[in-house]
Amino acid sequence: MKKQVLVLSALVTIISLFAFTAKHVFLYPTHFPKPVYHFNNNTLSKAKIELGRVLFYDPILSKDGSISCASCHSSYNAFAHTDHDLSHGINDQIGFRNAPALFNLAWQQQFMWDGAINHLDMQALAPIAHPKEMGENLTDVVTKLQSSTLYKTLFKNAYHDSLVTGERLLKAMSQFQLTLVSSESKYDKVIKKQASFTEQEQRGYTLFKQHCNSCHTEPLFSNYTFANNGLPVDSTLNDFGKMNITRKKEDSLLFKIPTLRNLSYTFPYMHDGRFKKLNEVLHHYTQGIKPSATLAVQLKNNINLSPYQKTDLMAFILTLNDSAFVFNPNHKYPHQVFGATPNNIPTNKR
């Protein structure tokens, strides 16, 4: 009997040790608030994060195997898409909105520029199914993955059996995206007292707190709510933002407030990518606001900034760039899995 107890407890220890090492602890700095994502429903593990990363970079998610998530969310651009004002998808189709940067997603409750998606897990469905993005559906993606030896292995590693389900796929994709935490900018180092601002950056920080912080709230540099920032409607798109979803006129022209982190990597700016340079953005906030019924109260009075103040503010904004995040090898294309570039691998060969 004693022997049995001993063997049993040894077994339990080994199992729990294994579970412990395979777990991934979600790390974030102490100056960040508590994440809103419910990790209890989707416990992070190294194998699931890895599965999510492979899915993120695999064009198998699109109808014709040509477009992956990374096509429009490149790690080198803080997971945004530079040079393109609007997203592009299969068959060279152009979408309706600017692909947003992906990081610090664990602190966000609503997704897309219009808030159409209420949970990170379900976000991936939108680009997968959009006819001008990946033009696919989850049912067919699951079927494709089920016949892939690569994914049989990856799902077995992650979930202890090779069964592919929509839930597992979506949760693994969430896991990878949750690990995209940007918190190593100069600003973060200053807050952690590991660095200090120059005089110019400090002046810019003061201006930022005065004019920008109520919407682009530190330390995430967005309060992740929705606002009308006074952009005139682009008549080629007629995009009314949140109202397209809620059908309430008080939501007209409300778009999700983007973060100001990593702006040097994520041009162009705004939901339709209309501004290529940060100077144009500052010009908009100081001289370009178009009044309308739903305009954010903070923008009802003109923001006056002298050219010197604009330079100071810009100096501060540049301290929000996080090169450690942008060049983090853990987030990059998984060469060890795909070998070559993803487009060179016929999906039926895997």
Binding site: N42, L120, M122, G166, E167, S174
Partner: peptide, 18 residues
């Protein structure tokens, strides 16, 4: 978020765009 069994989005009973 993502659910299992009959609620799995792969059954085509979950909207993608919203």
């Amino acid at each position: 978020g993502a659910m299992s069994g009959d609620l799995d989005a792969m059954h085509g009973m979950y909207w993608a765009w919203q």
